[in-house]
Amino acid sequence: MSDASTPPNDRPGTETATVGTTATLRTRLRAALPLIVKITRWVLILAVIAFAVWYFARMWEPVTAAVSAMNPWWVAGSFGVLLVGLVANALSWTTILNGLGHPLPVARGAQIMLVGQLGKYVPGSVWAYVLQMELGRQHGVARARVLVTSLYAAGIGVVSSLILGAFALPQIAAGHPALLWLFVLLPLGLVCLHPAVMTALANLALKLFRREPLEHRVGFGTIAKAVGYSLGSYVLYGVHLWLLTDGTVAFTEIVLMSAALSLGFTAGLFAFILPSGVGVREAVLIGLLSVVIPVAEASAISLVSRGMFTAGDLLTAGAAAVVAALMRRRLHRADVLGSEYADVASERV
């Protein structure tokens, strides 16, 4: 006969039942975790896309007003060149990831990079890195490896912008002397691009995330190819700007325009709280363009360029997602073969 005065929690068998219930809850939570992570990832993607669309919609009226005063054929050509430049930038990112020990098909690398970078439109550009890491994780790439890739891509972008800027130093000194301090970063950036330094820094980052170090040293070929794509993208951006002038500026000024936009991106990196460096990039761009064209025209071109970049980011991200969806079976096989996570193989396609 049980003692009615015994507290419920002290009765025989109660502790065992409590432990069993806790274990069951943990088991259910562990089983539900992949679904929770997947839902969270999609919520993050949709939120980022919503921010980018809202940002573009807010710019629509002033951009269309500026475009209406331009030659539509030159504007269309400018947008086409810009899209090619965005693709070249994605190829630079994918080249770095491959060199860091995780080869991916170009379509998958472009999807991770282009969709993930939409996070820059959310205030606090860290969201671009977060989204790229989550997309990489979804397809079997370690979050740490994606983060290292994104950081190195940003660093290569800085070095590339300063290399181009060096060819336009007189104009920079005349139009925006405050930018000259950025060139202090060039020697440091070049040192960090040395294969031994790049490999050591990558291994240090991987160690902090408790991941295995690289099995090989990053090669000169990988670095040269990534820098080449980055430089190519900036030159194409310069052509994009030149076309917006309707050809009223000498073609040789493409060097200045490439430097203006690339240095604007670099300066914008330091304004990480602002969505996609808004304001900072425009200030640099207008300051340098005003060396060769009137300030009013430079302001209009800067505004149209910003709108085109936003539209281009949305379009290329959407195209990359569609291509990945059409190739999903082939890409999933590649994901499984190179996956750094066991659960990727169980994903249904």
Results as ranks from 00 to 15, higher is better:
residue 19 V to D: 11
residue 82 L to G: 06
residue 103 P to Y: 00
residue 341 Y to I: 07
residue 73 W to T: 08
residue 150 S to Q: 11
residue 119 G to A: 13
residue 36 I to G: 04
residue 210 R to I: 07
residue 229 Y to R: 06
residue 204 L to P: 00
residue 127 W to Y: 14
residue 210 R to L: 10
residue 62 P to L: 03
residue 341 Y to P: 01
residue 107 A to C: 04
residue 73 W to F: 15
residue 283 A to F: 14
residue 213 P to R: 02
residue 134 E to I: 01
residue 222 T to C: 09
residue 261 L to D: 08
residue 238 G to H: 02
residue 326 L to S: 04
residue 137 R to D: 04
residue 322 V to P: 05
residue 292 V to Y: 00
residue 45 I to W: 10
residue 117 Q to Y: 06
residue 236 L to V: 08
residue 5 S to M: 11
residue 62 P to I: 04
residue 313 D to H: 12
residue 68 S to A: 14
residue 245 T to V: 07
residue 160 S to I: 06
residue 49 I to M: 14
residue 206 L to Q: 07
residue 204 L to C: 01
residue 95 T to Q: 08
residue 182 L to R: 03
residue 71 N to H: 09
residue 55 Y to E: 09
residue 30 R to Y: 06
residue 3 D to W: 10
residue 154 A to S: 13
residue 224 A to I: 10
residue 295 V to D: 02
residue 234 Y to Q: 15
residue 343 D to Q: 11
residue 231 L to H: 08
residue 299 S to I: 07
residue 94 T to G: 00
residue 301 I to T: 08
residue 53 V to H: 10
residue 329 R to Q: 11
residue 169 L to D: 07
residue 281 R to L: 10
residue 158 V to F: 03
residue 246 D to H: 00
residue 110 A to V: 13
residue 329 R to W: 11
residue 229 Y to V: 08
residue 248 T to G: 00
residue 188 L to T: 08
residue 154 A to M: 14
residue 319 A to K: 04
residue 210 R to F: 06
residue 298 A to C: 02
residue 156 I to H: 06
residue 229 Y to G: 03
residue 57 A to V: 15
residue 60 W to C: 01
residue 322 V to I: 15
residue 166 A to W: 10
residue 199 T to E: 03
residue 162 L to G: 00
residue 111 Q to N: 13
residue 138 Q to L: 14
residue 4 A to Y: 03
residue 8 P to V: 15
residue 236 L to F: 12
residue 180 L to Q: 05
residue 9 N to G: 01
residue 68 S to D: 15
residue 303 L to M: 15
residue 255 V to N: 03
residue 141 V to L: 04
residue 275 P to F: 12
residue 279 G to I: 09
residue 199 T to L: 09
residue 229 Y to A: 06
residue 116 G to T: 11
residue 150 S to Y: 10
residue 146 V to H: 04
residue 81 V to H: 07
residue 118 L to T: 07
residue 157 G to H: 11
residue 207 K to A: 12
residue 138 Q to C: 03
residue 302 S to H: 03
residue 117 Q to G: 02
residue 199 T to R: 02
residue 31 A to K: 12
residue 91 L to W: 12
residue 290 S to W: 01
residue 335 D to R: 00
residue 37 V to H: 04
residue 317 A to F: 05
residue 229 Y to D: 09
residue 92 S to C: 11
residue 67 V to M: 15
residue 279 G to P: 01
residue 158 V to E: 02
residue 29 L to V: 14
residue 157 G to P: 08
residue 207 K to V: 02
residue 169 L to G: 01
residue 284 V to N: 04
residue 37 V to I: 13
residue 88 A to H: 06
residue 330 R to W: 06
residue 183 F to N: 00
residue 27 T to D: 14
residue 300 A to M: 10
residue 160 S to T: 10
residue 220 F to Q: 04
residue 338 G to V: 11
residue 158 V to Y: 01
residue 117 Q to M: 12
residue 182 L to I: 03
residue 341 Y to E: 12
residue 74 W to F: 13
residue 205 A to C: 12
residue 50 A to Y: 14
residue 183 F to Q: 02
residue 193 L to G: 04
residue 301 I to V: 15
residue 32 A to M: 10
residue 216 H to G: 00
residue 19 V to F: 06
residue 169 L to T: 05
residue 216 H to Q: 07
residue 281 R to T: 15
residue 284 V to L: 05
residue 155 G to D: 05
residue 165 G to I: 01
residue 52 A to I: 13
residue 185 L to T: 01
residue 110 A to K: 09
residue 314 L to H: 10
